[in-house]
Design a binder for these strands. Sequence first.
DNA 1: TTATGGATGCAAACCGATTGCATCCACGGT
DNA 2: ACCGTGGATGCAATCGGTTTGCATCCATAA
Lengths: 162, 162
Amino acid sequence: MSSPCSRHPHPHRLIQQPLTELTEKLRSKSRKITAPRQAILEVLRRHQHPITNKEIHAALGTADCDLATVYRNLHTLEDMGMVRRFDFGDGVARFELLEEGDDGHHHHLVCTGCSAVVEVDGCFPTELEQALARRHGFTRVTHKLEFFGLCPKCAPAAPASV
Amino acid sequence: MSSPCSRHPHPHRLIQQPLTELTEKLRSKSRKITAPRQAILEVLRRHQHPITNKEIHAALGTADCDLATVYRNLHTLEDMGMVRRFDFGDGVARFELLEEGDDGHHHHLVCTGCSAVVEVDGCFPTELEQALARRHGFTRVTHKLEFFGLCPKCAPAAPASV
DNA sequence: TTATGGATGCAAACCGATTGCATCCACGGT
DNA sequence: ACCGTGGATGCAATCGGTTTGCATCCATAA
Ligand SMILES: [Mn+2]
Ligand SMILES: [Mn+2]
Ligand SMILES: [Zn+2]
Ligand SMILES: [Zn+2]
């Protein structure tokens, strides 16, 4: 789905702690270190953009396991704070492996033509969010934000409007 | 789902053009003015927050029609630019009736406890959006943004953190 | 080595949404 | 007022992503 990165004018989530360090975190929370889990983590390590359960399953190759196992493990990893779930609005969940200590909050710019993904660093002023929270008496306010557009490759032949 | 508004410290989309004006728009685009369509538009007129297909269907009352008809009509209305689709990240589409000439771009603050919705006026990430577009050569860039938190009613008993 | 509870495979179920098809009816033309 | 026609509807089947029940398996601690 997400295109391999060609040039690098944009921030990547280059990754990452070695596999052993990841499995160690599993052990520390008394989760079993199984072959499917290691394989799934390995797949996640290799991807710098959010990927779907199905994509993970397809990328397992030799260490194949049931698709349901992929789903269950991503829930587990999400609960453990090791991956973060993203929603590009197409009804399919996508996941990114997190760095140690990172809560993973960030955003993406997605091409509606070819599904290419750009990692977006930076977040609009948090003060605004806090003002919003204060104004309506909300607590623990956060947000989900994704950008969509046409990448250079997918730009219309006659670049009429912006 | 969405709670009836109690106090009013926040902007509402109070609505709206009369039903006749809405059906007139249907006529102008050579869509048939059917009972289900009028009933659906009437339901949409009465709601100031996004509602789901199922909620619309439930609110039809006397003028009941098939759920598939609701789905089809909301696609039609979306294509005609009469409603806008929103995504609160729970896998269910929600719709809001649009004012004439309004493209409907705005955001919401949703309580993760009771699903209460606050209409958010103001759109923060536009500068970031343009910078992103320029930086990565994307065109027609837009964004989806929703806020989530706990409303006053759903605030935890011991309001420890923010 | 053994016991045990978590993890997996498999298949069925779930849920929002879409679609194929026969029938219906809103509306323009007469 | 009456047709004729193509869009709209009802109904049921279907789809895709995700979840779940259950028997079996196996990673881990005793
Ligand atoms: Mn990312
Ligand atoms: Mn709204
Ligand atoms: Zn593209
Ligand atoms: Zn609430």
